[in-house]
Nucleic acid binder design. Structure first.
Lengths: 185, 185, 185, 185
DNA sequence: CATGAATGAGGCTTCATTCAT
DNA sequence: CATGAATGAAGCCTCATTCAT
């Protein structure tokens, strides 16, 4: 295996967050998984906390900023973009696992990032809903509601797989229905 | 202070889960909080895992079985019972904190309990909705949806306080509205 | 080997200071020397720093307070007490090794103790010299000088064994001479 | 900054010894201070021990050989040279700090150098005192005594600043008095 | 029933050293 | 000549667990 970069470590740390939360970000186990030694870690980061920070930044980027950018770049009607957004987001299994762990974390540093991410996501949803013809207040109310439902859904899918799908049919048709009802004036 | 029972330990462990998740269930800090020693713990439990198990059982009982029993005992129309249920549940701040941590936990032992609790809650919701006149399928669909929304709401309230309320007004009126829309045929 | 007390650890730490200075106070090596494990250490002390503190307290007690008390208890003329003091102090090889390490340490916590010890020793020397008939100022000047010479002597004995004795004859006769000249008005 | 020489490293290491003893000679911090990398160090030296050795050689040279040479070159009566010697030595604050650390070090490699330095210094002092008219034995006895006092003085000045001066007045007049009494037959 | 003491695994961090380039 | 990267030993500390009393 060639030399590792800080991003390799951050990515592995984000994986660890997905499986076990921030507490699962342990230097040595991640080193082993990367085929490196724990000592090498300290070349790339000054301390474990910096690795966590980098993983959080990566999560913010990938799960939110990149997704929004990708949706915007693809263009289309607001409704099409909403549909695309939901599609991307329900597919990113690893990232939504991280979402669950991170939203449950009590550490202030984590909460700061989570809050920023939540605001960004809700702001984007609201902007799409305004484009669909909703008033700002209605758009915001629906965006908060949709985001909250999203959180609940991934939570439920995580803790009780199949429970959601068994009542809702395929996730794809479910997403269609959610978009329809959000957009409806 | 009199001698400690296993339940005292389980209760303290549930408190710890509320503040920091299952990972925060550490024998020594809990012993300190109870004014006991670590050694004493091992008279009541064989291992830390058993304490977690007991705390989970307590959580299942209090957050779900007792709540349902209390709502049923109070009686009234299905709609009144729904309203009472939501009221109890949004008030139990400590228990809903535990909910958040537990729904995010990857440990199979935890997931088993969480799945059972989720099913029990959804079953109860569905039964009330059937009593309100919904078909079994519709009742179930709405129950799953309502539960998922509940999870999302407490998650959002936890990670970004005020965000929900700022868009939804008082929690009490919010609960009213949710019940109304769930019940509506 | 029976159970260890905190004092056993402090004593072993003082030994380590004698051989290698405060930096040589390492938990695991000391544990090995005591036939214990490093984990056991943390029953007796919260952290390594507390062990260092305890060792310094032990040094202050044994090398200074106990010595002074023992000299005072034995009684006799001031000159006899001076003679006894020098005898005790030159004999306590382990403690004087610690003296050397500690006087060279730059850590503020160490310097605080060392300064207190130096003052105590000089005060005691000065009080004996006042009893011998010196004026307070003369007594103090001689005490500082004698203490400084003591430090230089143990330093030289440590870094170049025999050099001192080769020029001064037996340590015992040397001490006699020093006392004589200190006492002389 | 131009390329570094081994002497640059040795000088920086000697600085480190002055501040924290041989234990403070750490490759990385010194590299940082020199604006170089750890890797560069291993071009100049095979191991840390070699750097320490070089620093000790530098110390021996500057603190002893150079001082003696400078005093001899300036010439004058033996007494004038003694006075000049004491002046130089009490002024070289950094070097005397190193003295303190090195005299307290237990490492055999360090002790070897320290012993050689002590002998050299005492020999030189003795030679000056012989020139002043003392017999060889008396000259040696006084030299050992003066050197030992010197060590005690810098120790005391280090661990309890002001204590010495408060009893002895200015260092300059103190040096005058010491020289006077050493020279007196 | 419980305590005081000890164990040992596991996690964090520093630092001397090595090595490919 | 030197850098960037990696290694591994050694030290600190926490915590689940055990055990004698």
């Amino acid at each position: 295996m060639s030399r590792l970069s800080g991003d390799d470590w951050a990515l592995a740390a984000l994986d660890a967050i997905s499986s076990g939360g921030v507490a699962a970000v342990a230097v040595e186990p991640i080193a082993v998984r990367l085929g490196a030694t724990k000592g090498s870690f300290y070349w790339h980061f000054k301390a474990r906390g910096d690795l966590v920070e980098a993983a959080l930044a990566l999560w913010e980027q990938r799960s939110t900023l990149d997704v929004i950018a990708s949706v915007e770049q693809a263009g289309g009607s607001p409704k099409a973009r909403l549909r695309r957004l939901f599609g991307l987001v329900f597919d990113a299994a690893a990232l939504t696992h991280a979402d669950i762990s991170l939203h449950a974390d009590a550490d202030p540093a984590v909460r700061e990032v989570v809050t920023r991410v939540s605001r960004r996501r809700i702001d984007y949803l609201a902007s799409l809903l305004r484009e669909c013809g909703h008033t700002p207040r209605a758009a915001r109310r629906r965006a908060v509601f949709a985001y909250s439902a999203f959180l609940g859904n991934i939570q439920l899918m995580n803790s009780s797989p199949n429970l959601l799908e068994s009542s809702v049919g395929s996730l794809s048709r479910y997403a269609d229905a959610v978009v329809e009802s959000l957009v409806r004036i």
